[in-house]
Design a protein around this nucleic acid. Sequence first.
DNA 1: ATCCCGAGGG
DNA 2: CCCTCTGGAT
Length: 218
Amino acid sequence: MKQSETAEEREDRIRQICARLAAAYPDAACALTHANAFELLVATILSAQCTDERVNMVTPRLFQKFPDPASLAAAPAAEVEECIRSTGFFRAKARSIIGMAQALMTGFDGKVPSTMEELTTLPGVGRKTANVVLGVAFGIPGLPVDTHVTRITNLLGLVDSTDPVRIEQEICDEVPREDWTLLSLRLILHGRAVCIARRPKCQQCVLNTLCPSARSLS
DNA sequence: ATCCCGAGGG
DNA sequence: CCCTCTGGAT
């Protein structure tokens, strides 16, 4: 049986994990196509339980028809639903983005707010979506915890929880603030390319020797 | 805990 | 067929 690592060993392992991810994904960036904070907010809401690639297929037409909060706030639900159908959860997502746009118009002068407290008052915007917008659009450090971050941090033995808030707190507590946003983006890239949920490619994983869940052969 | 919901991979 | 995809609201 492997005994639990000391605080120092853990700290060092986290540093190495961050370093190897940085080397593997030096140019990590948000993959959601967007021209401004409003578009990013819409795209991020649409990305729930859906690949970013598919979101990018529907947003050009959506933003052409509804380019700003004012037009989206006044959009017929059926028309929005038709635009975003292929992203799944289309009725709930249409309700969310239209309601979000209306809330921007009535409460925020048509502008996307830049605080966690304000963002999470918007329909369809939870902590994960808010963290994406804060980090990518406003450069405010945060750690969006999605399905990939949840899976990988648990496999790595850095956390033992599926509670996003708890994961965010525990990881942020041990990683420099300026690295939070990129770490999240890199974990997501890693989760898509290597540490795939269904069948992790442990043989070609740069975190192989740092991961208690790694298998040497499949 | 459950629902929302389409699309692609294995 | 079953699982998963940058979740959030009830």
